[in-house]
């Protein structure tokens, strides 16, 4: 039984015990009933919230979760472009990031409150998707920070000894020169083009 199975069982037990109290609230007059009420109406529901939040936070890091949004469909397809110059596709197809968490690995803010800020941004995007008008081209608010690239690449020998990277290391770490918009690695998703490109099919 996985963690989701345990959570479902926990929710089931909570519903059953709470239903007993709903039908027969008079049992809370006794000591056993009071303990049952405390467990069913306070301890178990609090555990359901905590475990549910943890499960949903983990799920929201999955590639499947991100590309399930209509606006992200072409971004998801861009991961399968059969062209090594496409940065996102190259990272995804060669497992430079975990394929199950490809979006999260490159787009999360690697700070202490990074995952929380990501979720707030996500909620804002859901608002735009369903209650406003999504823009034709999706831009990351505040731009793409080099720190997200350097989280993995900093310290890597083939990155730091690269004759192009080496002289501009300070500019890269201070975000003065962008990795993806300075003419070096500027083909990232190019989501509007994926319809015309050859796609990689895993296993073929």
């Amino acid at each position: 039984m996985g963690s989701t199975g345990i959570l479902v069982a926990l929710i089931g037990v909570t519903i059953v015990l709470t239903a007993v109290l709903l039908v027969r609230p008079a049992i809370t007059a006794g000591t056993t009933g009071k303990i049952l009420a405390f467990v069913a109406l306070c301890v178990l529901p609090a555990l359901c919230i905590e475990a549910g939040m943890s499960t949903h936070m983990q799920r929201s890091e999955q590639t499947q979760f991100c590309v399930s949004c209509h606006s992200m469909t072409t971004h998801g397809q861009s991961l399968y472009v059969d062209d090594p110059t496409y940065l996102a596709a190259q990272h995804f197809q060669n497992h430079r990031v975990s394929p199950d968490m490809a979006c999260y690995a490159c787009h999360t803010d690697y700070t202490i409150y990074g995952p929380f800020k990501d979720k707030l941004q996500g909620v804002k995007r859901i608002y735009i998707q369903y209650l406003s008008t999504p823009p034709a081209t999706i831009h990351i608010s505040g731009g793409y920070s080099n720190l997200q690239c350097l989280h993995c690449h900093a310290g890597a020998r083939n990155f730091e000894e690269n004759p192009v990277h080496h002289p501009m290391m300070d500019s890269l770490t201070s975000n003065q020169v962008s990795c993806i918009s300075s003419g070096c690695h500027d083909t990232v998703h190019n989501a509007s083009e994926v319809g015309q490109l050859k796609m990689w099919r895993p296993g073929q």
Partner: peptide
């Protein structure tokens, strides 16, 4: 609330999180 949580767990989508 628990019933809504059960429904949300059966669905991998941003709206399930909301």
């Amino acid at each position: 609330g628990a019933a809504v949580e059960l429904v949300s767990l059966r669905w991998v989508h941003p709206l399930a999180f909301v």
